[in-house]
């Protein structure tokens, strides 16, 4: 198991509002030029049976995400986690974050490359 696989990112997609702070924070931190970014946000909209649409935004660490190694080495959160307007991203050891999945629904755990 390589070193980078030990940590991951927990997304609480109940609260992601699709504001793109993560996408742009990554560009600023890592110098990506549009359209590249280590974080992209997917949008899923569907009508629920009771005649109301439900909007979900799902942040996704792309092939460019290195979990901000240079920051986490200094004890800082990745730039996207730090700036998330909804505080819905958590960085940490995958094992610990997996435990969080049991505590609250509408979460997803990513293990970027």
């Amino acid at each position: 198991m390589s070193k980078s696989n030990k940590n991951g990112m927990l997304i609480d997609y109940e609260y992601c509002t699709g504001c793109f702070s993560c996408t742009v924070a990554c560009c600023q931190e890592n110098g990506w030029e549009a359209p590249l970014s280590g974080m992209k946000v997917m949008e899923i909209v569907q009508d629920l049976p009771k005649d109301k649409a439900y909007l979900t935004f799902l942040p996704f660490p792309t092939e460019l995400c290195v979990l901000c190694n240079h920051r986490t080495r200094q004890g800082l959160d990745p730039a996207c986690v730090k700036h998330c307007m909804a505080n819905c991203l958590t960085y940490g050891p995958l094992k610990e974050l997996a435990g969080e999945l049991e505590k609250k629904p509408r979460m997803v755990l990513w293990s970027p490359r």
């Binding site: 504001c19 793109f20 702070s21 996408t23 742009v24 924070a25 560009c27 600023q28 931190e29 730090k82 700036h83 998330c84 307007m85 505080n87």
Partner: peptide, 22 residues
């Protein structure tokens, strides 16, 4: 070279929007 949210500011508590990050 970079703009970051101030974690000690009570308004945004470290967060920042895409416009300010640009």
């Amino acid at each position: 070279i970079k703009v970051e949210g101030d974690p000690d500011h009570p308004w945004n508590q470290g967060r920042l929007c895409s416009r300010c990050l640009s």
